[in-house]
Design a binder for these strands. Structure first.
Lengths: 241, 241
DNA sequence: CGGGCACGTTGACGTGGATCAAACAGACGG
DNA sequence: CCGTCTGTTTGATCCACGTCAACGTGCCCG
């Protein structure tokens, strides 16, 4: 497994993602405690696993840079992408419940994560209430996100799903200081399809349709959203299935 | 809102669900602290809301008796059932992230919940590490459950979905000391359909098919599973979609 | 610079489940 | 005991998306 382990100390107090991540809202002295807790950074090469389903759970990971997907797979080979994660987001929460991970986390580009030992996190969050609260919010946010995805998978048609996906990406890039109209997708059509409960051909057709209708311009993985309000309308006003 | 509030003290230490619920694994002195934290019980009549999407978040709820569904709804009226909850399970975790609930919780039969103020829970879990850890596990378990549901909604065909649903119900009834072969469904075909991303007619047809094939016997909401291994096989070996 | 390869696009066709419709069963109140 | 209402079953038809197949395109590596 070509994973490089860098024994760099991490400094949450210096991290430009601290407003998005666990340190949000902590005071300076609290941040220093957090700096001690976060052990090391770890570099994950493109297409390698941060962890695999079944791995013993040791800690959670804050993405410092890069892009990940998580997926689960059934014995019969079918699999489902359960999420795409970008800088500032937390990976590994699935492992707490059974002490083993229940999904795979794979880097979609060369990435770097901060390793947060779980025992230490629980220990520190007994002392720092703001950290405790942030962590609870992070978990809750994941639950709410999952409900949104269930809604998408359970009730939306193909074009709505893709519109929701694009708007979600756009919004998350924007929150990180990138353009909300123009971005580069790190995942294949097949991965998008798996995430949205569609086949890759359907995803491709929906991209083409959106381009023909003037909502976006697509060139391979490069997306430019031309009409954000238009996509939003698609989401709400399409005929129910 | 016809909700009865009973100002009974609750005693986790006496509750027969403590092995399934937050108190799991706590020592006697710790249980006494928990008894103090859990404020009141609240009775929820069938078809009334425990909380609604948008309500300010105050605490979480442990189901003492009864049966609930949670659902989310879109502006255009489409809705999706995100889960069915039974005794010993925790409701309200969705509210932590934004301080407002993001889904509706509705009792499907007359029910009773223990109200756990969230500030108190955070406070006590700073002192009682076993409680802290249990709570984290409960949240993580919800995330893992959601991933399973995404898998179901994203990759399974109608009969697989229903088989998965029935096996899940069966397993949860069994964990509560009820029969795993025979039980009463509290929800309508439409609610099952919404949960599974299917229309009620499809659910009904799948029930009939399972009955014809000798897997189950159905009489309205009363289900008797005849061939559990058979249903399991259906889940794993059906042709991919 | 050219050949292979993964990924993406597009078309033709098939089908699982949605939709529409009608009839039925149990629950309840008068 | 009957009428009404809500939930369920079943049949006939339709269509969105899956499937299968062919072809394009950018990219890496020799």
């Amino acid at each position: 497994m070509p994973i490089t382990i860098g024994h760099l100390r991490t400094a949450c107090s210096q991290c430009n993602l601290r407003e998005l991540c666990l340190p949000y809202g902590l005071s300076n002295p609290e941040l220093e405690l957090l700096d001690e807790m976060v052990g090391t950074r770890r570099k994950i090469k493109r297409h390698t696993n941060l962890y695999r389903s079944g791995d013993p759970f040791e800690g959670i990971y804050a993405i410092r840079a890069g892009f990940f997907k998580t997926d689960v797979l059934l014995e019969d080979g079918r699999d489902q992408v359960t999420g795409f994660q970008m800088a500032g987001e937390i990976l590994g929460l699935d492992g707490i419940s059974t002490e083993h991970h229940s999904c795979n986390a794979v880097a979609l580009e060369d990435s770097e994560v901060c390793v947060i030992g779980f025992a230490k996190l629980e220990e520190l969050s007994r002392e720092v209430t703001a950290l405790q609260h942030n962590f609870h919010k992070v978990m809750s946010r994941e639950i709410v996100r999952d409900h949104g995805l269930m809604m998408l998978l359970g009730t939306m048609r193909a074009e709505e799903r893709l519109a929701a996906f694009l708007l979600n990406m756009s919004q998350r890039f924007m929150a990180r200081g990138y353009s909300q109209q123009e971005f580069h997708l790190r995942m294949t059509r097949e991965e998008i399809g798996s995430y949205l409960g569609l086949k890759l051909e359907t995803v491709s057709r929906a991209f083409s349709k959106f381009q023909d209708d003037g909502y976006i311009s697509v060139q391979q993985k490069h997306i430019r959203i031309i009409d954000i309000p238009g996509l939003r309308k698609l989401l709400n006003h399409q005929a129910p299935r």
